[in-house]
Amino acid sequence: MAVMTTLAVRNKGLRPAPMVERNYAVHRHGWIMIISGLLESLFYLFSLGVGVGALVKQIELPGGRMVDYAVFVAPAMLANAAMNAAVAETTFNVFGKLKWMKLYDGVLATPMRPRDVAAGEITWALIRGAIYSAAFLVVMAALGLTDTWWAVLAFPGSVLIGLTFSGIGMLATTYFRNWPDFDWMMAFIFVMFLFSGSFAPIENYPSWLQWAVYASPLYHGIELLRAFSLGDLSPMLLVHAAYLAVVGAVCMGFAARRLSKLLYK
């Protein structure tokens, strides 16, 4: 009876913790995978930021300020890392558990509900992404790619990006049928990576393309993190953050509902 009352009370809110604990138990010995994920984003930073940066040297920001190219690209790589961590966790991993391992079928025979499962997986994706982002920021600071304390705000900023893309990833997963679908998703992610102002201010793009870029959540994430790491704050940042939050919340809402439909057959 005691168990019942506590559960009845808890059932009002979300219960993400058990799913997080489960994932932690699986990855407790798999830290090498997580470290390798961080290294992957550092490879991009060194190649497309530092390496290409040595060619470009300095670029002029829309406001007229000159910065090193690597300083310009680094926050975009951070945003990209946060996005990739969230997407990888909520698509590949969740899809595997949903369709192959049938893991959630077992979980749902307990008091856990589909929305608890979704919340747990998203929380786990955020934790994983936050570890990458924190480490990435430390590397950025160590390399002198940021020199302001505002850059600390890039950490919550990248968690927000993680939240948005966890929602998008979760929702996409409920629509996936098989692996070729993932290739198309990766294509979409990659197009965003190339065209969201990672490598040049989007003011350099043709104007029709600029409008398309405004729709890209990654663009808003990059603008947010870049402003923090350059110490270049403006009220526009609220718009960027709000866009990310709204897209994330809407996708999560739909994802939880669709997951219910998929699992409560």
Binding site: V52, L55, V56, K57, I59, Y69, L194, F195, S198, F199, A200, N204, Y205
Partner: peptide, 9 residues
């Protein structure tokens, strides 16, 4: 993507 973004510089 890269040609357009980096090429200018």
């Amino acid at each position: 993507g890269l040609g357009m973004a980096v090429g200018g510089y």
